[in-house]
Amino acid sequence: MSILAEPSPVPVAAEPPDLAALAHEVRELVLRMGTTAHGTHVGGSLSAADVLTVLYHEVLRLRPERPDWDGRDWFVLSKGHASAALYAVLAQRGFIDRAELATYGAPGSRLAGHPLRRLPGVEFPTGSLGHGLSLASGVALGLRRTGRPGRAFALLGDGELQEGSVWEAAMNAGHHGLDNLVAVVDRNGLQISGSTEECVSLEPLGDRWRSFGWAVEEVDGHDLDALRAVFAGLPDASGRPTVVLARTVKGRGVPLFEGKKKSHSVRLTPRLLQRAMTGLNARRAR
């Protein structure tokens, strides 16, 4: 039954994007946003950079010139503190100008520390953890009910999974077989106080999601080809929602920050930016 559907072809890029170059640029843009007055959540933005790059350049059906296009896929950044990485891919896709990224966190900017809905491409304001999967579930239900082809994606932090509401949403989506819903967990293993497993353990994480009725994909969250392959196979044909457990490294790409809990929120001085960029470029050249 379709009451709101507006059939429209999926846009196809003329040639495959250079995902590695785009992901590198996302990291560079994140670091530059980290130099603004309040800094940014560097570690969790860098860990999510590859996932977001693949999603925004390969997977999500979007029309940047018409963010409310009825046939679109919906994306919810449930770990709203990775806003800098989201803004970077939104700029790459043309939802906003690259120049606007320099206003990150500044008075009057549209680029808040956590995304605002008035920014083109942002479906919901997020940042308080544990909300995004419920929102995406409602969207998935609504898309199904109105006969629209879109899918709903939510990117969650792994520490965020300690929020009980995530499991309310997971239980419900599994029960209702929302196969147009995809959760991606940025499994970087760190939260502010340290290892997730030392804080309140999440493992066995795959089993937990499976027991809630989800199809589980585990993937190296920094392997662009592997991410591409996983997302290409969605939605799962089994009538279940899918969770992609993306194994990542906090601060990935910048040796200075990699695997360090202190990378969670950083303000980069010019000197620190230079060191970070040197490390980022060296890592890429390798």
Binding site: L4, E123, H131, S134, S137, V139, L141, G142, A169, N172
Partner: peptide, 13 residues
């Protein structure tokens, strides 16, 4: 909590 989030998602569509 999920009731409210799901409802908001439905309304958004």
């Amino acid at each position: 909590a999920n009731l409210m989030g799901v409802s908001a998602g439905l309304a958004a569509t």
